[in-house]
């Protein structure tokens, strides 16, 4: 029993997480204490170490908020606020999530379509692949604000501009993965299809498409995480109206560190959920195809 526990992953992960929380609290006390001591001295109060630690962990605007402060803030802004309220993180999270999902969907469709063209046309392959790879060395996230502002200028606003940034980021892993996946059938498998007198379409649907599935899902996991990043950054320049990115920006303007950290944690939870959903879809499809690992 204990052996199974120590050799599994649960105990090591929990240990590391516990260690991280301890380090976090240590840092919180260390980083917040200068300001607190300063206040004590101004108020000319006697203070003890215990009191100092207690106060540093409960500041209004700490340099590094303690874990429980962030937890309380998340609880307050998700469960205790109405969903429609402007201060509810569920509301902001939904705005970010909808842009993410739209961008992810467009990116996936575009990526798969490009991959299909690239696999079936040599000219496409030779002329586009290098540019697709080069397109990712362009720091698109850095240009995101301009795309948003420019699209706003021609009357496109709201969900779509953000989604387009997510699209740009997420199509790349899908193209690369799918090109690899659609080419993964071996020569003898392709030859077999040839002896069946299969048409190109038949070869595609019965051989290439099924054998590309593992590659597709691996890319989708990367793509969904990256499109969330795109959506968050896309929200930064729109004047900080709504969304998790806007919460980050307003938090940094007004020095609300607790707000920044809670937005960060909600974004992290969102990313984890999205990756897990794709992972679950992956497992279901693989099992249906008899490829379960």
């Amino acid at each position: 029993m204990t052996r199974a526990l120590t050799e599994g992953r649960t105990i090591p992960i929990l240990t590391v997480v516990a260690a991280l929380v301890v380090i976090w609290y240590a840092f919180a006390v260390w980083l917040n204490s200068p300001w607190q001591i300063d206040r004590y001295e101004k108020a000319e109060v006697e203070w003890t170490t215990g009191q100092l630690i207690n106060d540093t962990l409960n500041q209004e605007r700490p340099v590094l908020p303690a874990a429980h402060q962030v937890a309380v803030e998340i609880w307050k802004t998700t469960v205790q606020k109405k969903i429609t309220s402007k201060r509810s993180l569920v509301f902001h999270g939904w705005i970010t999530l909808s842009a993410t999902l739209l961008g992810f969907a467009i990116g996936t469709v575009l990526g798969v379509a490009l991959a299909v063209f690239i696999v079936h046309n040599r000219a496409m392959d030779k002329s586009m692949m290098p540019w697709i790879i080069a397109s990712q060395t362009v720091p698109i996230l850095a240009i995101a604000p301009m795309i948003i502002v420019v699209l706003n200028a021609i009357g496109l606003s709201g969900l779509l501009p953000k989604a387009l940034i997510s699209t740009y980021l997420s199509f790349f892993p899908v193209v690369v993965g799918m090109v690899k996946g659609l080419r993964s059938p071996q020569a003898h498998e392709l030859d077999l299809m040839h002896t069946y007198n299969a048409s190109r379409a038949q070869t595609f649907w019965k051989l290439r498409w099924p054998s590309s599935m593992p590659y597709l899902f691996t890319s989708l996991k990367v793509a969904v995480a990256i499109s969330l990043v795109g959506a968050i950054v896309g929200e930064l320049p729109t004047g900080a109206v709504a969304g998790l990115g806007a919460r980050l920006l307003t938090g940094s303007y007004y020095g609300q560190t607790i707000q920044i950290w809670s937005a960060l944690f909600v974004a992290a939870a969102l990313a984890a959920c999205l990756v897990m959903i794709v992972g679950a879809a992956d497992r279901i499809v693989m099992r249906r195809m008899g490829l379960a690992r």
Partner: peptide, 15 residues
């Protein structure tokens, strides 16, 4: 590595 780490930017600027 799957998290939107870019979000820590405001915190780092503050620190």
């Amino acid at each position: 590595s799957a998290l939107p780490i870019i979000g820590i930017a405001p915190i780092m600027v503050m620190w």
